[in-house]
Design a protein around this nucleic acid. Structure first.
Length: 471
RNA sequence: GCCGCCUUCGUCUAGUGGCUAGGACGCUAGAUUCUCAUUCUAGUAACAGGGGUUCGAUUCCCCUAGGCGGUACCA
């Protein structure tokens, strides 16, 4: 296969903590774009800031992505293992006159910045070392703390075409002489990013909107190296309900948090895919496979999208309702302190917004003793006598039931409904008390489903208890 | 401050130089029902503001406002 026109994209997180829900979307869009174009999806770890490293973050990032079946097609590249490469490229840039050594101390830089701010000028490196003649080939002999800065042209403009946003143009005058190599020998994001994207033959850089204003620096770097830049697509931000950038203050931002709360991975992916993208049709329930088929960068939105948990809840409950009984049980089990069965989780299937709601909705099944007021057993348009009559009727019928006959909700439904009719009771006179006697609460699932979940013994016992309560 | 980006129902969004501006979530009401949930039906609600261009602008242009992002030896 020719690599010339092959689509190659990368997701390049910094290991500074949990995987952010916005990062998951960036990864997803990259992944979908790669698969849609039969290209390659890569992961690269951008760990060039020693101060912000968090132990285990890389592993957790990769593990979380893997849960969503997002994995690198080629070995993962880690920037901290490539320090020599970046350094060499930076020195070459000095040799070719596109960069220079800078000896300015942090305190001088701060002073310059403060001065500029007080004069209401945009803060920018003042070019103090820009025209020094420190010889490039003697880098190892350089005075100790030094950095390498990019020599940004002072005239003209730098523009690029963004797939999402169209033409974007910047005046070179306002672009700072960006540090490329820090005094600790590590590259900055800008340098490492460009070198790696080039060496990894990245065709499309798909990243968050926060990068648009540094893109001109990147373009200038590509020009300095004499490399062709990739195509760019800057994704809109994910927002809090108040439209500020999605942050921890106003809810969960870690993907793990959502998983822990009982959101299904498929629902999360479906939801997140539609935050900033849509196929242009009314279809909005999508499997990953379908997303791959329909995903196009051109349909990505320009404006930020509010992360609307209510819609996520709806989507999640939709996915839960589509689950097979056995799938539902195994997905719910980790969220429950009870031993779940098909017939129990079935009670909750229509009402679960999140898997973690399972115990709240089914705990009455497992309770030894139900606590409710006897009055609750009597329906509004009925009375005590009728209620006792109904309960007695059902009690003796169920007690006489053979073996697991009560386990079939449909059979028991027909059976008890016949009984009810023969005894001239309305459904509400008959089934309301029965349901309350079994659930102990005003609202609950279908009474016959409850019977099949409870089984014969417990059902009979609970009805008996209810009758006693009324006496 | 400076630079850049953005702006259709509360939210996610479709859409076009001429439409009753469409869908989804939410909300409200009704139907079904032993209650709740589900399901079904109906309703609710938007082109940020001001100028142009045009026979006609939500759509094209300009301005304003607001929001967001960036402005580091962080990514």
């Amino acid at each position: 296969m020719s690599t010339k026109n092959q689509t190659r994209v990368r997701f390049a997180p910094s290991p500074t903590g949990y995987l952010h829900i916005g990062s998951l979307r960036t990864a997803l869009y990259n992944f979908l774009f790669a698969r849609h174009n039969k290209g390659v999806f890569l992961i690269r770890i951008e760990d060039t800031d020693k101060k912000r490293q968090i132990k285990g973050a890389t592993e957790s990032l990769i593990a979380t992505l893997k849960q969503f079946n997002i994995e690198s097609d080629e070995p993962i590249i880690t920037q901290s293992k490539r320090l020599e490469i970046y350094k060499k490229h930076a020195e070459n840039l000095v040799k070719s006159g596109h960069a220079y050594y800078c000896l300015c101390t942090p305190s001088r830089l701060e002073k310059v910045r403060n001065q500029q701010e007080s004069q209401k000028q945009p803060p920018k490196y003042d070019g103090h070392c820009r025209n020094n003649d420190l010889m490039p080939h003697a880098s190892c002999l350089m005075p100790k703390p030094h950095v390498i800065r990019l020599k940004v042209p002072q005239e003209g403009t730098t523009k690029f075409k963004d797939i999402v946003r169209g033409e974007v143009e910047f005046d070179n005058k306002i672009i700072d002489d960006q540090v490329l190599l820090k005094s600790d020998g590590y590259p900055t994001y800008h340098l490492a990013n460009i070198i790696d994207d080039h060496e990894m033959k990245i065709s499309h850089v798909i990243r968050g909107e926060e990068w648009v204003s540094s893109t001109p620096k990147h373009i200038i770097l590509y020009q300095a190296f004499g490399w062709a830049p990739p195509k760019f697509a800057h994704l809109p931000l994910l927002l809090n309900p108040d439209k500020s950038k999605l942050s921890k203050r106003q809810g969960d931002v870690a993907v793990e948090d959502y998983l822990k709360k009982g959101y299904l991975k498929d629902a999360l992916i479906n939801f997140i895919a539609f935050l900033g993208w849509n196929p242009g049709t009314n279809k909005e329930i999508y499997t990953t496979k379908e997303l791959i088929k329909d995903f196009k960068l051109e349909k990505v939105q320009k404006a930020g999208a509010v992360f609307n948990v209510e819609k996520l809840d709806w989507l999640n409950s939709l996915y839960i309702r589509k689950l097979k009984p056995s799938e539902l049980v195994s997905l719910c089990q980790p969220f429950s302190k009870n031993k779940l069965t098909d017939s129990v989780t079935k009670l909750a299937q229509d009402r679960l917004k999140k898997l973690s709601d399972i115990d709240e909705l089914t705990s009455f099944i497992f309770q030894k003793e139900l606590t409710y007021k006897p009055d609750l057993l009597i329906p509004k348009k009925s009375d005590k006598q009728k209620t006792i009559k109904a309960l007695n009727l059902f009690h003796s019928n169920i007690s006489k039931c053979q073996g697991d006959a009560v386990c079939d909700a449909e059979k028991i439904r027909n059976n008890l409904d016949d009984l009810r009719e023969k005894n001239n009771l309305t459904r509400s006179e008959a089934f309301w008390p029965l349901r309350v006697s079994l659930a102990g609460q005003k609202n609950s699932p279908d009474v016959f489903d409850i019977i099949s979940a409870l089984g014969k013994e417990k059902t009979a016992k609970r009805i008996k208890t209810a009758i006693n309560k009324l006496k």
